Simulated scan of single mutants.
Amino acid sequence: MNHIAQTKEALGPPAGPATAFFARLAERITKFSGTTLAFCVAAGLVLVWALTGPLFQYSETWQLVINTSTTIITFLMVFLIQRAQNKDSLVLHLKLNELIAATKGASNRLINAQDFTEDEINILHQYYCLLAEKAQKENDLGRTHTVEEAEENHQEKVEAHQPKAARRR
């Protein structure tokens, strides 16, 4: 059984028809909301609302219509936009994970780095800061360094500074 089949099995049955329908609807609305047509429709509605002001004597009800409409649309769009960003972020992480997994010499510890704690991320950030410093000291731009190489160098430095008696143990 391949890895994708194992993953599907572990995740359980696919989402039901209602979830699939909502996913398709949300995707269509998200795509449409970023188009020129959507902007023109929204601008047109605001223009129609503004032009009807004299007809309704700029009443509180007239103002309430635009305020309520825009508030509801904004409220719903926040969730749709967040859903789209979550999906895009997940896809980006999957692509990066694939590149890491497929690249010889890459540190597999970075696969699913988005799930790391803040402390773990800070530790890795410090490693990469060390690698950047190391790269700056060398004039060879083609030379690469890995986290593992930095760890080995660090360990060698630690051992070099230990008293000889401590090294023998």
Rank of each mutant, 00 (worst) to 15 (best):
46 V>M: 05
88 D>F: 07
85 Q>K: 08
63 Q>F: 07
81 I>R: 06
85 Q>V: 13
84 A>I: 09
65 V>G: 11
86 N>L: 02
55 L>R: 12
112 N>G: 09
75 F>D: 01
65 V>K: 14
114 Q>A: 09
104 K>H: 09
55 L>P: 04
47 L>R: 04
128 Y>T: 01
42 A>H: 14
97 N>T: 06
72 I>F: 04
54 P>S: 04
128 Y>N: 00
120 E>C: 01
67 N>S: 13
61 T>K: 11
49 W>Q: 03
129 C>E: 12
61 T>P: 03
48 V>M: 08
76 L>K: 10
130 L>A: 14
56 F>V: 10
67 N>H: 08
58 Y>W: 09
108 N>S: 01
87 K>C: 03
123 I>G: 14
80 L>C: 11
74 T>R: 13
115 D>Q: 15
89 S>R: 03
121 I>F: 01
94 L>E: 08
115 D>M: 15
124 L>E: 02
115 D>N: 15
47 L>E: 03
58 Y>S: 06
58 Y>E: 06
124 L>W: 01
75 F>E: 05
57 Q>N: 14
121 I>R: 05
64 L>K: 15
50 A>E: 07
126 Q>L: 13
127 Y>K: 08
43 A>I: 13
49 W>Y: 03
111 I>C: 11
56 F>S: 09
49 W>R: 04
61 T>C: 01
62 W>C: 11
129 C>A: 13
70 T>P: 01
81 I>M: 10
104 K>F: 09
72 I>A: 12
65 V>F: 05
115 D>G: 15
125 H>Q: 13
98 E>H: 12
64 L>H: 14
127 Y>A: 08
78 V>F: 06
65 V>L: 13
52 T>Q: 13
81 I>Q: 04
107 S>F: 01
61 T>G: 08
81 I>K: 07
66 I>W: 02
93 H>S: 14
111 I>R: 13
71 T>N: 01
54 P>Q: 07
105 G>V: 10
128 Y>V: 00
113 A>C: 14
105 G>H: 04
51 L>D: 06
51 L>H: 04
102 A>K: 06
66 I>Y: 00
91 V>M: 10
95 K>S: 02
76 L>Y: 02
118 E>I: 14
120 E>P: 02
120 E>R: 06
84 A>F: 04
48 V>A: 10
89 S>I: 04
110 L>W: 00
65 V>C: 14
56 F>D: 07
94 L>I: 11
49 W>V: 00
104 K>N: 08
98 E>N: 11
75 F>H: 02
102 A>H: 05
62 W>G: 10
101 A>N: 09
114 Q>M: 11
64 L>E: 12
129 C>P: 07
112 N>Y: 01
42 A>Q: 14
120 E>V: 10
104 K>T: 12
70 T>D: 00
96 L>Y: 00
51 L>C: 04
49 W>I: 02
100 I>P: 03
89 S>N: 03
95 K>G: 05
93 H>I: 12
68 T>Y: 01
78 V>L: 12
